[in-house]
Design a protein around this nucleic acid. Structure first.
Lengths: 154, 154
DNA sequence: GTAATTGCAAATACTTTGCCACGTA
DNA sequence: TACGTGGCAAAGTATTTGCAATTAC
């Protein structure tokens, strides 16, 4: 996202939160802007360690803000099999799937049409679940790790 | 799986591990058999709390065994957005996707042809990753939770 | 002024490791 | 006997909460 888009999205998120009784605070702005700035999922620790945030917010505050954003559907969590959870800002029209190395943890976005979207509507009907979204990850051994991971794993 | 299939699969797993220097122990048998018996992903805590296991194994042992099984590709971990990780026995020809309620955590298997398998081979070529598998989960609000989760989430 | 928010510190929960005794081959 | 394995206990890491002080409106 461009700086302009980041600003717009940040403003929009804050606006939506304010309509639900939340207050506009510096910490909130910083966290949303940083999430918008990043293109990839981040852990709470990474987010809290961002210089601008680190200087001005307590990690507990970051935690509570991200939880609030998640409650309101503005942030999603991702299970990438690391010890800690990853979070990602929800931006309309944007969706990515990931390819993760089970040996070194390297994660890359997959650039392809996601074949699963079409199923969501169908699934809503058949299951009765609402607000369905999906998460799709591929796991494997990346080229760099290939040599060190022998046939042992299979 | 039937009792017979559970026994067969347990024996096969142990056999494969033994070929790699592992020893046949009671704890190993119990853990694999329990994983084979269950149809759904389990956490380490759940596994360790299984009566037969609880009586005869320390949780740390269960942890180490599951890690070992995972190293050898016999168990996979699943990110279902709970605080703890879920594990699932790998059985050739079996694959399931899941639908999880973000409000109560209820998880159900989805009974449908998985539309993603076909992509794995293609992805191996384009990415250079080896031994690719995928994980696909759908998240949403289940019918039981629908009333209590107002429009707030959207 | 009122209610939401923050920082700090402490409590949980989950995961991981060290070490020595033990069991398997 | 030799080395993988198990139990117990402790350490490490991530997450979550309590509470008083602060800030937004």
């Amino acid at each position: 996202m461009s700086d302009q888009e980041i600003q717009n999205h940040t403003a929009e998120c804050i606006q939506r939160l304010r309509q639900r009784g939340a207050r506009r605070t510096r910490a909130l702005e910083l966290v949303i802007a940083e999430l918008a700035r990043r293109r990839s999922p981040v852990t709470l620790a990474e987010l809290a360690a961002t210089p601008a945030i680190k200087e001005q917010c307590d990690p507990a505050t970051v935690y509570r803000l991200v939880m609030k954003l998640e409650e309101h559907g503005m942030v999603r969590r991702l299970g990438l099999h690391e010890r800690s959870t990853y979070f990602l800002l929800v931006v309309a029209g944007q969706h990515h799937d990931y390819l993760v190395c089970t040996a070194c943890g390297k994660m890359e976005e997959i650039d392809m049409a996601c074949p699963v979207h079409a199923l969501e509507a169908k699934l809503e009907k058949s299951s009765g679940f609402r607000h369905i979204y999906h998460e799709l990850e591929f796991f494997g051994i990346c080229p760099a790790c290939s040599p060190s991971v022998s046939a042992a794993a299979h």
